[in-house]
């Protein structure tokens, strides 16, 4: 009875239901969300608005800041591109082929999600150092250069591409490919004209997810990067440096720009996922 009364009270806000607990769970959800996430982020936004556009611009035009943004976005882009290629390959191999150890490898793809970033960071920098297991075979330096950042971000971003492409690849119907084959297409044509367009939205989503993660990544990068300002210094590290120097205005300005960038990426991801779903339905 109480529920019926409350639905008439709330009117068009929600559909009537005989299940209880709407008010208390929604109230708790919104309160906890505000307390943990929204108020802290609003605090940052408020600080940024205190700086004004001029203050923001003054920080953003510092050569060191520009350099850090360049390094961060370029390395994240490179890593996301590598992951798009190899992530698609790994997803393809896992979905299409049977081979010994496939399940173990499938499980292992999530390692970058589960492994603490600092552990990944020290392991990669030990491996890719000049005398490391991998680094000694390479003709060029990887650790302590921007290439090192790309290696770390490739590690971090891989599961994003694999896990977004894999289910879509699993759902593609063999009939469509068979039809293409009957109509005279060879394997390459089938892949580029039939399979690839079907998984393209998912691949783009995976790319964007990996890129977004790479832009914000800190733990795995700082050990291998070398952290030379303008060359291999990433934005998250610069924020920490500014905070340690008690330059809160500078840190706020940089963080605000980073947040704006991540929200744009989040929006892009949502649109892409919408596109993927629309395509699947159609």
């Amino acid at each position: 009875m109480a529920e019926i009364a409350s639905t008439t009270l709330t009117g068009g806000f929600r559909k009537p239901s005989i299940l209880p607990g709407f008010g208390i769970t929604l109230g708790f959800t919104v309160a906890y969300l505000s307390l943990v996430v929204l108020i802290p982020l609003a605090g940052l936004a408020l600080r940024a608005s205190g700086l004004g556009f001029g203050g923001l611009w003054a920080v953003m035009s510092e050569p060191r800041v520009i350099g850090a943004f360049k390094v961060t976005f370029l390395t994240a882009l490179a890593a996301a591109l590598i992951n798009t290629v190899f992530g698609l390959l790994v997803a393809w191999v896992l979905v299409r082929y049977e081979f010994p150890g496939r399940r173990v490898i499938d499980a292992l793809v999530d390692l970058p999600f589960a492994l603490p970033t600092a552990v990944a960071g020290i392991a990669l920098s030990a491996l890719y150092a000049n005398n490391g297991w991998i680094g000694q075979f390479l003709p060029f330096r990887v650790a302590f250069t921007p290439l090192g950042i790309v290696v770390a971000l490739t590690f971090i971003g891989l599961p994003f591409v694999v896990r977004t492409v894999q289910p879509v690849l699993q759902d593609t119907e063999p009939e469509v490919e068979e039809a293409a084959a009957c109509l005279g297409a060879n394997r390459l044509q089938i892949f580029t004209r039939v399979v690839f367009p079907a998984i393209m939205p998912a691949l783009l989503t995976g790319f964007t997810l990996a890129f977004a993660r790479g832009v914000g990544e800190y733990g795995s990068v700082i050990f291998i990067a070398g952290n030379l300002p303008g060359v291999s210094e990433i934005v998250p590290l610069l924020i920490i440096i500014k905070l340690e120097q008690f330059d809160y205005a500078g840190a706020t300005a940089i963080a605000t720009m980073m947040l704006v960038a991540s929200f744009c990426l989040l929006l892009a991801i949502n649109l892409l996922q919408h596109w993927t779903r629309a395509r699947h339905a159609g």
Binding site: L41, G216, L243, A255, S262, F263
Partner: peptide
């Protein structure tokens, strides 16, 4: 979608 560093920084602010 928030960088870990910024997640910590909001509490410092």
């Amino acid at each position: 979608s928030v960088s870990p560093v910024i997640s910590g920084m909001v509490f410092v602010l």
